[in-house]
Amino acid sequence: MRYKNLFFDLDDTLWAFSRNARDTFEEVYHKHELDRYFDSFDQFYAIYKRRNEELWVEYGDGQITKEELNSQRFFYPFQSVGVNDENLSKYFSDDFFAVITTKSGLMPSAKEVLEYLAPRYNLYILSNGFRELQSRKMCSAGIDSYFKKVVLSEDLGVMKPWPEIFHFALSATQSELRESLMIGDSWDADIVGANGVGMHQAFYNVAGRTKFAFRPTYIINDLKELTGFL
């Protein structure tokens, strides 16, 4: 096979971010007895998720800093129900970040597939996540040893899908574009981004997307499908 270098997204491609994050939020929600303020955990989490998605777009566009992203996304749910307690928000966010890095849930077959690929390819992580979290999450899940390098958007100050982060990752890992494949679950960040610099892509279609602006190099519905062509 022509590929030598495989670039993996981390969250919801290998590490089960959606499940691990929800579990963490629920654990910290009950620790702080937030039923005092919210009708249910589901109400709290729906409020958080909606605003969090908006703030990540603003962060990716350079409109807010990392610090503003983190302070606003945790404070917003409290503000939305009339609780203007910044200290409570800070305690909640501190507990969240302490707990989430201990979660070890992986996407189906992730470790099995990495075990197969690691002796055959150079494996790298290319993620928009924060450095203080990503490495610890990988260690907790027992997958850190499979990767030769972790490249994060924070290293450059530019997030996927911008082309600069892909060029930076290729340079940092001394990888040739024509020998590299991007594997990820985010259509916009991973697939559109890689396609934009001419890198082949394997779209992990976790959400069951049916409409595509272009045909990615590969579409997989299970990580095990990677072993069929790699």
Score class of each variant (00 low, 15 high):
74 F>I: 14
144 D>G: 10
161 P>R: 11
27 E>G: 02
174 Q>R: 13
134 Q>P: 06
186 S>H: 09
77 P>R: 10
209 R>C: 00
85 D>H: 12
160 K>M: 10
119 P>N: 15
158 V>Q: 09
144 D>T: 14
11 D>F: 08
177 L>K: 15
143 I>R: 01
6 L>K: 04
67 E>D: 15
196 G>W: 15
184 G>D: 02
52 N>A: 10
3 Y>L: 03
28 V>C: 13
90 K>N: 06
38 F>Q: 03
140 S>K: 08
104 S>Q: 08
73 R>Y: 03
119 P>H: 15
216 P>K: 08
95 D>C: 13
2 R>L: 05
16 A>Y: 09
100 I>H: 11
127 S>E: 09
50 R>V: 05
113 V>G: 02
196 G>Q: 14
106 L>D: 10
148 K>T: 05
58 E>A: 13
29 Y>D: 02
23 D>Q: 05
85 D>Y: 14
77 P>E: 10
204 Y>N: 01
81 V>G: 05
120 R>I: 12
209 R>W: 01
14 L>S: 00
63 Q>C: 13
34 L>Y: 08
108 P>S: 01
86 E>I: 11
99 V>K: 13
73 R>H: 03
198 G>Q: 15
210 T>I: 05
129 G>T: 14
52 N>E: 07
15 W>A: 02
2 R>I: 02
185 D>C: 09
145 S>D: 01
82 G>H: 10
141 A>Q: 08
170 L>G: 06
207 A>E: 04
227 T>L: 11
24 T>V: 07
12 D>V: 03
186 S>E: 01
153 S>L: 03
172 A>P: 04
81 V>W: 07
192 V>E: 12
40 S>A: 14
62 G>M: 08
169 A>F: 10
99 V>I: 10
52 N>Y: 08
14 L>Q: 03
136 R>P: 04
3 Y>H: 04
23 D>S: 01
45 Y>H: 15
84 N>A: 12
145 S>C: 03
77 P>Q: 14
71 S>R: 15
159 M>R: 06
146 Y>P: 07
